[in-house]
């Protein structure tokens, strides 16, 4: 019982890490650019495929492959900003929504054509290594998902809190016009935000690809959960998204382990609906009234 419980906690942390890494980019792009990016989980899917290519085909060490996949997808995120977000920025909001849905459909179908619709295995040097402790065994891959996620969150936190770019990002999020008056180049901040968001999503894909399978549909399967995370954490709220990701990840895997895996999505969305009824701004939404 105890072992089962710990096992499910570990699974929950892995799931929560995935959600957190994807949700961070989604919530940042919403907060800073004001865009609801429906294509965001496709960056996770593509990141996983890039990871497969680098680690399985080019036989690079996993961690190097992870970093490279993040870099490749950061460039991809910048291209997305330049080619789709920027031209649509001054257009009506609906155009942007259709635009991001378009990117999503385009990327999924392109992945089906290029990589085939069949799921791909993504074995790494950590897949078969186990760590056993008090009768509980976890693969190193799972342990690494959680550890790398913590490192990335710490890094992101440092960037946002203490660097000039991070401060400029927060300024754009809090008051875009005032940010412009400070001389902040909004286009540059958008580009950086998209790059960071895409890199984090790619990290999620490369980290959990070896645990599950890699397929063109994996992004579509994740997006509704990730939106639940972002809404639960409060739209645009970075720490909120992190907490919400782990809350949902744990709730899901404990439900799957102790009730039934059929009910895990039910629990997720029940939590979401309950929170929205009680706290419409999200669990960590800003309820304080700001003086103007």
């Amino acid at each position: 019982m105890f072992q089962e419980f710990v096992q499910q906690i570990v699974n929950g942390l892995v799931l929560g890490s995935t959600y957190a890494l994807i949700a961070l980019g989604l919530t940042m792009i919403y907060g800073i650019l004001g865009i609801v990016n429906w294509a965001h989980s496709e960056l996770y899917m593509l990141g996983a495929f890039v990871g497969v290519f680098l680690v399985v085909h080019l036989k690079l060490p996993f961690l190097l492959g992870l970093v490279l996949a993040m870099l490749v997808m950061a460039l991809f995120g910048m291209a997305m900003d330049l080619l789709v977000f920027r031209p649509l920025r001054s257009a009506p909001e609906m155009n942007m929504i259709i635009g991001t849905l378009g990117i999503s459909i385009f990327l999924v179908q392109a992945a089906v054509i290029v990589f085939s619709p069949n799921p791909v295995r993504f074995p790494t040097e950590f897949s078969d290594a186990y760590l056993s402790f008090m009768g509980i065994s976890i693969t190193l891959q799972r342990l690494m998902v959680f550890c790398v996620t913590l490192v990335l969150i710490a890094l992101l936190n440092y960037i946002i809190k203490y660097t000039t770019v991070g401060k400029a990002m927060r300024a754009c999020e809090q008051n875009r016009d005032a940010a412009k008056l400070m001389g902040i180049d909004i286009n540059r901040i958008s580009l950086i935000t998209c790059a960071i968001g895409a890199a984090l999503a790619a990290a999620a894909g490369t980290l959990v690809g070896p645990i599950f399978l890699v397929s063109p549909q994996m992004g579509l399967a994740a997006i509704s959960k990730v939106f639940a995370v972002v809404i639960l954490g409060g739209m645009g709220n970075v720490p909120g998204a992190i907490w919400a990701a782990f809350i949902l990840g744990l709730a899901e895997s404990l439900t799957a382990g102790f009730i039934s895996s059929y009910y895990k999505d039910v629990v997720t969305f029940c939590i979401l609906i309950t929170v929205l009824i009680i706290k419409p701004a999200g669990l960590f939404g800003r309820s304080q009234i700001e003086k103007v």
Binding site: K167, Q174, N175, D177, L181, M182, G183, V292
Partner: peptide
């Protein structure tokens, strides 16, 4: 040219120091 906008438009979730620091962004 520096513009101090109507309605103050400070950054509400940043400290006084961070607000000032952003003033010197350029």
């Amino acid at each position: 040219i520096s513009h101090c906008p109507e309605g103050r438009q400070i950054f509400p979730r940043m400290t006084v120091m961070e607000n000032l620091e952003l003033g010197a962004y350029t």
